[in-house]
Amino acid sequence: MMVEFGDEFEFQPDVSMPTVKSFTTEATRMDFWRFTDHEKARELGGLPGAIVPGIMSQGILAAAIHRFLPGSTIRKIDTIFRAPLLVDSSPTARGVVTHVDEEEGTAEIDLTLVNEAGETPVLGTAVVEVARAE
């Protein structure tokens, strides 16, 4: 297989306000102030600022897998939103291969979105069918 237990990968996703606004308007039609307005999120929502939609965080983690394993197919992705991930922050999307099934051609991957403080507001796991080398 193209992947081994313990392989690690990461990328820096773009969670800037313009990108989140594009996600909430063009991609999903869920243009709520808690995602797109820092001030209202603080004043009305009691949040530290506008937050990245959970489904965008999950989409970022799926993209991280595809960047690491192009051509692979995600069979299952499970994400837990433990704390707000802030818009305009600089998180890192990380993955670690934690199980490889040679017979099935699948890998299990730990996924995290880590913020600048080293905390993990989003974590999850995925089962991926790994593309075989031609």
């Binding site: 594009s22 991609a27 989409g59 799926a62 192009p70 051509g71 197919t73 995600i74």
Partner: peptide, 27 residues
């Protein structure tokens, strides 16, 4: 737009001309 905003680079999700073009798996 979903693929672009999430940072997808796999052409199966980001390039409508790809023969296996499809929506991202979490769409």
């Amino acid at each position: 737009a979903f693929a672009r905003c999430c940072g997808e680079t796999d052409p199966r999700y980001s390039d409508p001309r790809h023969p296996e073009y499809q929506a991202p798996p979490t769409f």
